[in-house]
Nucleic acid binder design. Structure first.
Lengths: 170, 170
DNA sequence: ATCGCTGCAAATGGTTTGCATTATG
DNA sequence: CATAATGCAAACCATTTGCAGCGAT
């Protein structure tokens, strides 16, 4: 699978693009159901989030958003992202660097993460067989899985190559 | 759902007890190598940790430790556990409830975790096949795995039974 | 006698919250 | 208009750190 690297030296190609339109309408439903208001700030933050590459931190989002509206506050971004998480539109991740990161909730194509400890890059992977084994283990324990977290921490291809190049030229 | 499982060896078996003696001597080595001093407080904290059931928080440890020495401070427990982690004697876990938990570093028998969101209970599981698949995925991405995290969040058997009992008698 | 360790209190830092103000439905 | 949302600053809270005195080597 996915031998296609396209040479692009960046990490972060998703297995599939989430169904943005579906998520948009789920969000609309959620907001009207909960009587949440659509403000200029929220629209801006949400659009930014939907258009951005995945795994944005609050600071990432705030930086982008402030290019359009310089006086948006931290709290508004925090609250908006919490709202998206509560509505099932975004997933929160804590990858261990102290920041909460957000990604679109792509329920149809669940994926897990490879986190490079050198460059901070995040790649995604899918492995249905693991999910299946996981489910079997849970059953064995009488455990009902509601959510799971599977993360591999280490060194990505580029960082390894960089490290090797450095060693060789020494 | 059934709980009977034929097949597949001992997926659900409880992991073996870490080799405490080996860890003790590794710790001794580490401390003398790093010229770390063996104080009364450290001895108490370390003994408590080695004897305790796994996944203790700082507060858990402090509570126990203070029964023997009421004036031990938070900072000392934090620092001692950091030392154990740095020396490879303990592993730190962040299961999402805001507290760091510690367990003995049992390198021979790696295990992952089932976390009950209702009662906070933590069970352990081993599944070598998952580890293997994981490694294959990493290879596919040119990724070098240094560490990983595999956690299932949900409801444990007891909590499910409790919940069902409650529903039935209503 | 060094120099690491302890305990306290103060600092850190990402996140949350109280409140007066603004703006949506 | 009622009331939800904003922005600021203060509060939170687990964890870390500075420092003066203590104690291990």
């Amino acid at each position: 699978m996915g031998e296609d690297e396209s040479g692009a030296a960046r990490i972060g190609s998703a297995p599939k693009r989430p169904n943005v339109e579906r998520l948009r309408s789920e969000l609309d439903d959620y907001m009207s159901r909960q009587q949440l208001r659509s403000t200029e700030q929220r629209r801006l933050i949400i659009d930014t989030f939907f258009e951005s590459q995945e795994h944005m931190t609050i600071d990432d989002l705030l930086a982008v958003v402030r290019r359009s509206d310089a006086k948006i506050g931290y709290a508004t971004v925090y609250r908006t992202m919490k709202m998206l998480a509560a509505g099932g539109i975004a997933h929160e991740h804590r990858f261990g660097d102290g920041f909460t990161r957000y990604e679109l909730a792509d329920d149809d194509a669940h994926h897990d993460h490879l986190i490079c400890e050198d460059c901070g890059g995040i790649e995604e992977f899918e492995e249905p067989l693991i999910e299946e084994l996981q489910e079997r283990i849970a059953e064995r324990y009488g455990f009902t899985v509601r959510d799971h977290k599977h993360e591999l921490y280490g060194q990505c291809r580029e960082c390894r190559m960089k490290a090797n190049a450095g060693n060789n030229k020494g």
